[in-house]
Structures are given as C-alpha cells and as structure tokens.
C-alpha cells in the first residue's frame, strides 16, 4: 500500500503517526511511503519510521520510500541524527549515507 505521510512528523503528532504506521503494518502488505508532503521531522518521527521499517523487515515485508517520493527533509534529519549508515550486511537501516556527502 502507498502511505502518504503528513507534513509534520514531530513529537506533537507522534501518537498519530504511530497509530497510522501500526494500522499500515497490521494490514500485512508491503508499505511504500509517500514523503513528498513532509516539511518537518524530529527524533520521534525518525524513531517511528525506523521501528516500522525494522518490524516490516522482520515480517519479510517491504517498508521503503516509493520511487520519487522520498524526502530531502527526512534524509537530512536522518543524517543529522546519525541514523544514516554506510551499509553493511548486518544493517537494515532505512537510510543510507550517500557515498561521501558527510564531512
């Protein structure tokens, strides 16, 4: 299913985002995110997306940004928060550091 994310993924609306993600995961299918509307994300938003991704992967489901529907806001926040990773085998992070943009 395609899940459209709201403009603010911050602590004030974290309960709401969790409910949305739980409902989506309980649906049992693969989830593609449309993050084009996201204007703001904080640690709670990152944690929720991370947890949803982890849970989905564990269930053998896809949890990813839809083609062309990723969000620079989210990528930047993930980078700032240290969530981005140079990928390796054991890693299932939703965020990958793009080669050498850190510095």
């Amino acid at each position: 299913m395609l899940l459209k994310l709201h403009d603010k993924l911050t602590i004030a609306s974290a309960d709401e985002l969790k409910a949305t993600l739980v409902a989506a995961l309980d649906g049992g299918g693969d989830i593609l995110l449309d993050a084009t509307a996201v204007e703001q994300i904080d640690l709670t938003g990152l944690q929720l997306l991370f947890a949803a991704h982890k849970t989905a992967v564990r269930n053998g489901k896809t949890f990813a940004f839809a083609e062309g529907a990723a969000s620079e806001v989210i990528d930047l926040a993930a980078l700032r928060a240290g969530f981005a990773r140079d990928a390796d085998d054991s890693n299932t992070s939703l965020w990958l550091r793009r080669s050498h943009e850190h510095a």
Partner: peptide
Amino acid sequence: EVVATTDQIPPLHDLVPD
C-alpha cells in the same frame, strides 16, 4: 560525524512515541 545507536529502538508496537 555522528552515529546514533539505534538498537534500543523497539518494534513499532512497543514503541512509546515520546
């Protein structure tokens, strides 16, 4: 560089949002 330790983030259902 900053690296977050994320292994304490629980599965979605157990996560306390704030």
